[in-house]
């Protein structure tokens, strides 16, 4: 039985794959490869013949060819479990593709802060107080709060400039109703609202690290 004969007899890719299996069982590797290549040509959107051909190359220790075939299979179904296992078997670790939006990245960091005891809300604003993102556990108008705090921050920042005391890094306001911590750069303000009496010092470094991450995410400064 020649390959052309097989092709004409085979009406579906399943049949070609089954026949290739039979060839492999009988040690007819070259013929099985030919059959699978035919199956690929006839069914370019089907992943199975690629996987079977890839597994033959892996068996043979031909990593280069295996990688070439599996890479083509990846274009059809990158999340295929068998494909991922085969990649792993030849030492190729595929990173799980993750498309995370900028908002999600920022929310993730802000959620980290919200887990800190005593923090009631976080508002991220630009230098004029326009909100970028807010996570609040209390009924506050984030727009107004952002503008008010930014205005105060700006006033203090100007004072430091006038007194030649360098760039303002953060302010901590202890007010009758609660505390407010603000971290700033030239274009960002991270406003953290605290319960009254909450100690800032113990978590200051953790908050500063998160603020740095937020600055990096936004590619600022």
């Amino acid at each position: 039985m020649n390959q052309d004969g097989l092709r004409s007899d085979a009406s579906s890719v399943e049949v070609l794959i089954s026949l290739a299996d039979l060839y492999i069982e009988n040690g007819l590797i070259k013929e099985a490869k030919g059959l699978l290549e035919t199956a690929i040509k006839q069914n370019k959107g089907v992943i199975e013949p690629y996987l079977q051909l890839g597994s033959i190359y892996i068996e043979e220790g031909n990593t280069d060819m295996a990688l070439e075939v599996l890479s083509k299979a990846e274009r059809i179904d990158p999340r295929n479990k068998n494909l991922q296992n085969m990649f792993e078997s030849i030492g190729v670790k595929k990173e799980e593709e993750e498309t995370v939006s900028l908002d999600d990245l920022l929310k993730r960091e802000m959620d980290t802060l919200l887990k800190i005891q005593g923090i009631l809300g976080i508002i991220l604003v630009d230098e004029v107080g326009s909100p970028i993102l807010a996570e609040l556990k209390l009924p506050l108008n984030e727009d107004d709060t952002g503008v008010v705090i930014s205005s105060i921050y700006k006033k203090i920042e100007d004072t430091f400039i006038e007194l030649s005391m360098g760039d303002l890094r953060n302010i901590f306001l202890e007010l009758p109703g609660g505390n407010i911590l603000v971290f700033g750069t030239s274009s960002l303000r991270l406003i953290i609202l605290y319960k009254k009496g909450t100690l800032y010092a113990s978590k200051g470094n953790e908050i500063r690290k998160v603020f740095k991450k937020i600055v990096n995410i936004l590619g600022e400064d």
Binding site: I156, L163, F172
Partner: peptide, 10 residues
């Protein structure tokens, strides 16, 4: 109310 403001030079 109390304010602590920290900058690079003081």
């Amino acid at each position: 109310f109390t304010i602590s403001a920290l900058a690079n030079n003081g």
